Simulated assay, not measured.
Amino acid sequence: MANHKQKTKKAFKHDKSDLINNAASFGVKPEVMAGALYGLDKASKEEATKLINTFLRKEVK
């Protein structure tokens, strides 16, 4: 049985400003994207999607 190494491709990280400017492609307003990315400088598309979902499900205090 041969050992096969799987190649892992790192996701490209986009600048916060680019993600905010293109918030509509994620189906949210720029304000929502800004809140979801608070404290970050860069994020991949997959990370941004997860952060948006987490942000929208947070309980308001």
Rank of each mutant, 00 (worst) to 15 (best):
Lys45Leu: 15
His4Glu: 07
Phe55Ser: 03
Pro30Val: 06
Asp15Met: 15
Lys45Gly: 06
Gly27Arg: 00
Lys50His: 09
Lys7Phe: 14
Glu59Val: 10
Glu59Ser: 10
Asn3Leu: 10
Lys10Thr: 07
Glu59Met: 08
Ala24Ile: 09
Ser25Met: 07
Leu19Tyr: 01
Asn22Gln: 10
Phe55Met: 06
Ala2Gln: 01
Gly39Pro: 02
His14Met: 14
Lys50Trp: 09
Asn22Tyr: 00
His14Gly: 03
Ala24Asn: 06
Lys29Ile: 07
Lys58Asp: 06
Thr49Tyr: 02
Glu46Met: 15
Lys9Gln: 09
Gly35Met: 05
Glu31Lys: 14
Lys5Pro: 07
His4Trp: 08
Ile52Phe: 01
Ala24Lys: 05
Ala11Ser: 12
Thr8Pro: 07
Lys9Trp: 00
Gly27Met: 09
Lys13Glu: 13
Lys61His: 04
Met1Phe: 00
Lys61Asp: 10
Asp41His: 14
Ile52Met: 05
Glu59Ile: 13
Met1Ser: 15
Glu47Gly: 02
Glu46Leu: 15
Lys16Tyr: 12
Ala34Cys: 08
Ala2Pro: 13
His14Pro: 00
Leu56Cys: 08
Pro30Gln: 10
Leu37Glu: 02
Arg57Cys: 11
Glu31Pro: 01
Ser44Tyr: 06
Glu46Cys: 11
Lys7Gln: 12
Lys16Ser: 04
Asn21Asp: 14
Leu37Asn: 05
Leu51Gly: 02
Glu47His: 05
Leu51Lys: 02
Ile20Gln: 02
Ala36His: 01
Lys29Asn: 11
Ala36Pro: 01
Ile52Asp: 01
Phe12Cys: 09
Gln6Thr: 11
Lys5Ile: 00
Lys61Arg: 07
Ala2Cys: 09
Asp18Tyr: 14
Lys5Phe: 03
Phe55Ile: 01
Phe12Asn: 04
Leu56His: 03
Lys29Pro: 05
Asp41Ile: 07
Gly35Cys: 08
Gly39His: 03
Lys7Arg: 10
Asp41Tyr: 12
Phe12Tyr: 12
Lys16Ala: 06
Leu56Met: 12
Glu59His: 09
Met33Ile: 05
Phe26Arg: 03
Ala48Tyr: 08
Asn22Pro: 01
Gly35Thr: 03
Ala43Glu: 05
Ser44Leu: 00
Asp15Lys: 13
Ala24Met: 11
Val32Pro: 00
Asp41Lys: 15
Ala36Arg: 02
Gly27Lys: 06
Lys58Gly: 06
Val28Cys: 02
Thr49Gln: 12
Ala24His: 08
Lys16Gly: 03
Phe26Met: 09
Asn3Phe: 13
Ala23Gln: 07
Ser17Ile: 15
Thr49Leu: 14
Leu40His: 00
Ala34Thr: 06
Lys58Gln: 12
His14Glu: 11
Gly27Thr: 05
Arg57Lys: 13
Lys5Tyr: 08
Thr54His: 10
